[in-house]
Design a protein around this nucleic acid. Structure first.
Lengths: 275, 275
DNA sequence: GAGTGGTCTAGACCACCTA
DNA sequence: AGGTGGTCTAGACCACTCC
């Protein structure tokens, strides 16, 4: 038999009946296999961490080519239901613990905790956070950054700090911070090691910029190849792309940070007052 | 020749040199094709809306099987770079216009615009928004909803409204609103047509609940099959999953809404004050 | 070394779109 | 009708993991 003219749906196979009714109605073999596995996962028949049958097993059970079983696994992976481990197998995904970022994380009441906002959130959630400094440079700002920070692009430069934020053993955020050179000059922020327990915001506060409000623009998109590497992302995982602007007591935007956060391990909580 | 022992990389093909250096270093044929197409897109050689070579073309050009060219297209699709149209071809994706939701959309200063928050944002951005009512029911609340709304789950019921929000011809949000029955009873909110120009929040305001603050919890995840249908999502597109809680002048959470928003067409803007 | 997923071949027929 | 993507077959070899 050749081609797709399927005349042998595995109607009599042993799985029918053990999985939910969700799998009924799927006509394509790959979708049908995926739907049955999905039903098994959602019904709890297959539990988190448990191993699925191998692709060769599935193909044999359903009487399909291996590629077809493989396609089914792919659908489940894209849906975020399973983790595929090269060489070991396919496993029902264990939901990753979220790092929840609260909108109060910059509040002055945490000023004396000795923790910068990200480390504070990690500590709140019982995880050990840390920073990795990728680079600290002085650069001409991109147009978008220059206009946000009110820096004339042809005149001034900005301090750029590139970081990875880690929660336990997972790299979760790729962070780029821009500060006008006129503000950061002489503060020690050009050093890798930040000379303040409270981090960048401690330093900026000491030199006269207190955060009175901030703005965050949130979008989401597929990760770039670069981000997939840095954040060790499985294929198909999206990222949050958050642009954060800090505004001081004089209404001056004095710091701009881009957070690229793996969207499968990040939550954002905002508490707003209505004016 | 069989198997993957590739001994004929298309080194002398005509594309080499026309695409960027980003394609160099890819060893697998599928990745290499994807990288060259990606480079062509990112360099502007292929512009938005333009058609890519057909899978059969690509396979011939690179001397691979069609499946291999297809895999390359798949990678680009997952990266959000192209749209695959069954029967017509593969096209460089035209960035979809974002609906930006501002944190001030519930502000009372828009009270007299005659537009509810979503329609307001559409109008601001020059698009025509509309609601589609899927269902209006009275139900026992899920545990999570009951606790948020402080409704004892075994005693009370909630009004549940299911909507699709449309921006022009795109379904963009799948919205579920929960209101304690003790609050919504007798307000006319059980009707499909909401008896107030300002929408649900107008009705609730008239019966004594003014929004003084709200809370939004934002996560993102792959769309469920159901959401893919309702929002007409291309494979691989994620959704924002936003739980919004409205809190009134007496600090009572009186309304809970879940927004499932296609993440490729939605942005969230928050303006925060630091306490 | 046995078993798993990762990639590839060289075909095939089906579903859809455009003309 | 002809071209495009969608799915499938029945094989193959490679890369990785675990015993």
């Amino acid at each position: 038999m050749n081609g797709q003219a399927m005349t042998h749906p595995p109607d009599g196979n042993t799985r029918t009946g053990t999985s939910g009714a969700g799998a009924v109605g799927e006509r394509l073999p790959s979708r049908r296999i995926a739907a049955e596995l999905r039903a098994a996962i959602e019904s709890g028949e297959l539990t988190a961490g448990q191993k699925l049958p191998s692709e060769r097993d599935l193909a044999a059970r359903y009487g399909t080519a291996r590629n077809t079983a493989r396609e089914a696994v792919r659908l489940l992976e894209a849906a975020g239901l399973v983790d595929v481990e090269h060489g070991s197998g396919v496993f029902v995904r264990r939901p990753a613990p979220l790092i929840r970022l609260g909108s109060d994380r910059y509040s002055r009441r945490y000023r004396d905790s000795g923790l910068s906002p990200f480390l504070l959130e990690c500590a709140r959630q019982g995880r050990i956070g840390r920073f990795e400094v990728l680079s600290v440079t002085r650069e001409r700002p991109p147009k978008h950054v220059a206009s946000m920070l009110r820096v004339p692009p042809e005149q001034e430069s900005v301090l750029v700090r590139e970081n990875i934020f880690w929660a336990a053993n997972d790299p979760v955020h790729r962070v780029t911070t821009y500060i006008p050179w006129t503000i950061s000059n002489g503060t020690g922020l050009l050093e890798e090691e930040i000379p303040h327990a409270y981090g960048i915001h401690g330093v900026l506060e000491d030199c006269g910029h207190t955060m009175t409000r901030y703005q965050e623009n949130v979008t989401a998109r597929p990760a770039s190849p670069d981000e997939q590497r840095h954040l060790r992302l499985r294929p198909g995982v999206w990222v949050f792309d958050v642009w954060h602007t800090s505004i001081d007591q004089d209404d001056l935007p004095y710091e701009l940070t881009r957070f690229v956060m793996r969207a499968d391990m990040t939550g954002l909580d905002y508490q707003m007052t209505v004016g």
